[in-house]
Every structure is written in structure tokens, then in C-alpha cells.
Design a protein around this nucleic acid. Structure first.
Lengths: 122, 122
DNA sequence: CACCTGATTCGATGAACGTCAACATAGACA
DNA sequence: TGTCTATGTTGACGTTCATCGAATCAGGTG
């Protein structure tokens, strides 16, 4: 798989970190919205959200697929969703021996959290 | 499993506020993921994100459709997306004379922001 | 009243998505 | 070597989604 990835996403690197100002600050431009929507869409599926949460909450901030694949769908589907999360820049993966470990890209959570910041947060 | 979710949540109503603990706290349950994914999915479209941002950043926290419909799609499409945001509980609408004003549900932003909170994030 | 403008709903179409079964690949171990 | 386990990939199928044009509804104005 020499991997010809679509030019929509940067293959390596965070690339999602410094996305946009808070939603409430000013109307997003089309470009900003495109970037941010990609992240939100990645979390817009229940299975992906559970996988992401499972990785994020796992000890050490990383988890192998075997630890988180109990979400009620087949393993190919799990792999498919993990790939989507990875393509969206939310997760990174590393193979260590038999298992593949996934890890949360920390800057992403911060960026998305900032996006939802309100000037007068209740 | 003291699921502290409001009983009003079921019938396509609003009330998405107190959704779930932070993603990093523990793996989400299927139910929690279903609820949270609905919100993320609502923001997972560039047009919807721009509309939402336009309302959220508008003076007074509200805007009529005429003020925010300049997002490059037809008016029926704008209305369609606004309806989706409303169904997801992110916006509320009120008709005043000729125009319909949309307003951001403030608790939602707080809930989603909390969802993305990290223990390490300052 | 008739007429106009703005907003929503309806119907249809093409694209994207989620899912699985089957196959392929990578590493561990006997 | 061969075989088993753990992931990733491919192809296909049914569903959902985003979008538009046309029709419909609601308010204001003459």
C-alpha cells in the first residue's frame, strides 16, 4: 500500500491543531468550517466516539485494538473507523510487535474544546 | 449506571445539555455515545457549522435567516440545515413578524466543551 | 383585496456513509 | 517451515445525507 492518500488531508503530522477561533467569536469562513467540520464529523458516529473515548480514557493514553474492539461491530468495521479517526488527525497508531497501539493526538482535544468556548461560559 | 439524562430527550426534542462525562474520563457507553454523536454529527457539516457559528457570533446571540443565509447554498438547503441544528437541540427558533430568529442553546456549547475536556488541559 | 418578499416543506437524485464477509498482511511461536 | 493470532484492506450492499427545483405557507404593503 504505497498509499496515495487524497490531497484533502495532510498525511503526516497533526494538521488539525490550530484550526479556528471559537465558534462564537465570529462567523466561520468556508475554509475554517471545512476543517472543523471534518473533526466533528469524525466524532459524529457512535462507534467512532466510543472507540475514541476508549483510547482517550485508557491508561497511558494509548490502547491496542484488542482492548477497545468491544463495541458491538465486526473487527473490520472497527479497523475502518480507527482509520477514519486517524485520517482525521484525531488518533495516531504505532505497531509494537503483535499489537497496534492507538493514541490520542492531544492538541486536537484542546483545539476542539477551544472551538466550543463561550465568552461567558455557564 | 445513574444515567443522568433528561427524560425529555427521547422525542426529538431539545434537552441535550447534560450529556456525558468527559471523553477522557472513561469509555463511553453505547447510549452516551449515541447522544453525543448526534450533537457532533450536527456540527459535522461545513454549511451547518457556518450557520451555527453565524448565529452564535451574531449580536445578541440571535440572528434571522436573512442575516445568515449567505453560505453558498439555496434557501431551502439553509432551512434544511437549520432544522437539523434545531432537531439536534443546538438552536432554537422564534418567529417575530416576517422573519424567524434563531438562537444558540447555551447549555449545549458548555456540554460539548466539557465533553472535550482533558485532565491535563489547563 | 391583490401582490410581493421571505421562509418552509415536498419530491427526487446523486453522493457519501456504515456495515459486513472474504481476503490479505504482519508478527509470534512451535 | 508451517500455523495461529491480530489488524488492515477490498468489494459490495443498503441506508442516510446534502442538495436542488417546485410548490406551499406566513407577513407585510399597496
Amino acid at each position: 500500500m504505497s498509499n496515495t492518500r487524497l490531497p484533502l488531508l495532510e498525511p503526516a503530522g497533526p494538521a488539525v491543531a490550530p484550526c479556528c477561533p471559537p465558534l462564537t467569536e465570529r462567523p466561520m469562513t468556508a475554509e475554517e468550517a471545512e476543517t472543523a467540520a471534518r473533526m466533528f464529523k469524525a466524532l459524529g458516529d457512535p462507534v467512532r466516539l466510543r472507540l475514541f473515548s476508549a483510547v482517550a480514557s485508557h491508561e497511558g493514553g494509548e490502547a491496542c485494538v484488542c482492548d477497545i474492539s468491544d463495541v458491538g461491530v465486526s473487527q473490520p468495521t472497527v479497523s475502518h473507523h480507527l482509520k477514519k479517526l486517524k485520517d482525521a488527525g484525531l488518533l495516531t497508531s504505532e505497531r509494537r510487535g503483535t499489537w497496534v497501539y492507538y493514541r490520542v493526538e492531544p492538541s486536537v482535544l484542546a483545539a476542539m474544546g477551544k472551538l466550543l468556548t463561550t465568552p461567558a461560559t455557564a
